[in-house]
Amino acid sequence: MLSRVAESLFWIGRYSERAEHTARILDVHVQRVLEDPWLDEASAGRELLAVMGLPAPDGETDSRGVTELLAFDPDNPSSITGAICAARENARGARDVVSSEVWECLNATWNDLSHSEQLARRLGPHVFFRTIRERTAMLAGLVDATLARDDGWRFLVLGRSLERVDMTGRLLSSSISEDPASQSWVSLLRSCGAHEAYLRTYRRAVDASRVAEFLLLDRLFPRSVYWSLSMAEQILAELDGARGRARFTLDDKARRIVGRTRTELEFRSVDELVDDMPDLLVSLQRTCSTVSEAVTTRYFARDAPRSWATEVPA
C-alpha cells in the first residue's frame, strides 16, 4: 500500500469519527442548555470549546455561537463541516483504494452539507447532527461491508479507533460535573448511544463513577476507551506482525504506547478512576497524538515535499 494512500485512509478514519463525535457532543450540549434552566449558557459554551481545543472566541458562546464554530465553520478542520471536507478530500486522493460505495457515501455527504446546514438553520441544529450521525454510521457500515481486511482497512480503522479514544475522552471531560447524580451523565450516555447498554449492564440508576467506568473500561462496549485502545493495539500488532517480529522489546513505538495506556486503564480501580479522571483524560488525549505521530513516522514516511531546483551550471 502506498504510504500516501495509507495516510489518507488513516485520516479518513480519524476525520469521519471526529465528525460523528462532534455531532454527538454538540447534540448533548444543545440539549443540556435547553433542559437545564440553571445552567450558565455562555460559560458552558466556553467550557465545551476549551475541551474541544478551541480558544474562547470574541463573539457569543451561547449554544448558537458554539454550534457555528463546532458544526459549520468550514475553516476549522475539527468542526463537523471541516472534518467531512477533510475526510472527503483524503478519500479523493485515495479513490483507487477506497471502494466506490465508501467514496460515494462520503462525497454525497459532502455534496449535501450546505443543504443540511440550511435546513439546520431553519429547523434547529438537531437535524444536522442526526444527518451526520446517520451518514457516518452508513460510512462505517460500508467500510465494514465493502473493504477487504487489508492494510488499507487497518489504517482506516486504526485512525477511527484512535480518534474514538480521543473524542470519548473529550466527551467525558465536557461532562465532568460536581454533582455525581447530575442529569448530564444521562445525556452523556445517550450521546454515545450507550444509555440502554449501560442500563442493561448495571441495572440501576446512572451515577458518575459507573458512567466513567463504563465509558472508559467496559470490555464489551465498542465505544469504550478500553475497547478502542485494544482495537488499535490489535491492528498495530497486525501491521507490525508482517514485518520484524520482536522477541523481546517491541520495536514499534506506537504499539508500546497504546499497550501501556491500555494496561494502565485496565488495572485501575473505579475509585482511582474517578479521582484521577481529569488527569487521565488529558493523558489519553496526549497518547492519541503521540501514537498518531509514531504511526506517521513509521508508515507514512513523508519527507519534506520535494521541490527541484536547477543547479548553477558549472
Partner: peptide, 18 residues
C-alpha cells in the same frame, strides 16, 4: 551541451568553478 546539469532538492547551490 552543458558540461554539468542537474536538479536537487533543498537549499541553494553555488558553482564550485571549474
Amino acid at each position: 551541451v552543458p558540461p554539468l546539469l542537474g536538479v536537487y532538492s533543498g537549499g541553494s547551490s553555488t558553482s564550485l568553478g571549474v
